[in-house]
Amino acid sequence: MSNDATTRREGAGVAPEHSDRTFWGWLCVWAPYTALMKLVTASPRRQFIILAAFPILWVLTQHLGPMLQMLRVSLTDAYPVAPGVEQHFTFDNYARFFGEQIFWQPFFRTLIFAGVLTFCTLILTFPVAYFLARHVSRKNQMLMLLLLLIPFWVGEIVRTYAIMILLGNTGAVNLVLKWFGLIDRPIPFMYTSFSMGVGIVYLTALYMLLPLYSALEKLPKSYGEAAADLGAGAWTRFRRITLPLTLEGISSGCTLVFLISTGFYATPVLLGGPSTTVFAETIAGFFHVAGDEWPTGAAFATIMFVTAMLLTGAFQKLMHTLRKGDTK
């Protein structure tokens, strides 16, 4: 890279002789610009520093910064600090989490919920992805995938509201059931874990569908045909070929959906009830009231983040070993 830069600088010096009068030709010979360029390209090292300084600064201060500040606040006893009050280092905020049932119960509920819903999403979208990738012609694949993409551009709140209308006491599902004479009185779907589950699956299905689809699409059809020729039944083919070779898609889809479903706030508030409080609502509660609850909220958010990262990390590791074991 180093000798490249020197030859190029000599090259840049030649450019003025061409004296074309386009903007670029003019820029090349404009004295302040050439002076600046000499400064910038003085050495490959300087060139790299100029290119790298801003992105590195940005990711450190804007991407990592908020997480670190959250961690720091979670270890203090007061934030924002009132004048005249001294801030102390403490683990009390973390201790509070384990001390009270109203705190850890929503936490475990959220994890179990997210896990179950991730599995439901996988079961629901796998046949759809399989159909699209294996049974549809290339041209129609794109159209049929696009058809599914349209509703997913619509925001979280609007789609949550759509589910509220679908499942309400005078909603479409109850209307249809009544119409068929299956029920006399509407079933109260709303404000239960059922309505919340339907809502969250509705919001996250695409994040499962796309990784599954791209994994299935890469899988050559001939593998299945070869296995069939050798006498493998449909179930064996699925278990021994399709499943192991799409584990990568399954693993990234599940990770995405799990992380997204643990983070929902508005959907559980609107679709859930008092018995389905999720941890996001618990965390949010500390930020609606006076500022001195912030450290607890920060601690709880940190607990959730670390747990979610550890779980998805362990899951990916597991899928990785499964994949290795199968391709041996």
Binding site: V59, M67, Q69, M70, Y79, I260, G263, A280, A301, M304
Partner: peptide, 17 residues
């Protein structure tokens, strides 16, 4: 990183920052 942090946690972290 910001794309991986679950919604509520990212909102809280931004609020504090």
């Amino acid at each position: 990183l910001p794309a991986l942090v679950p919604g509520i946690i990212s909102a809280i972290a931004f609020r504090i920052y």
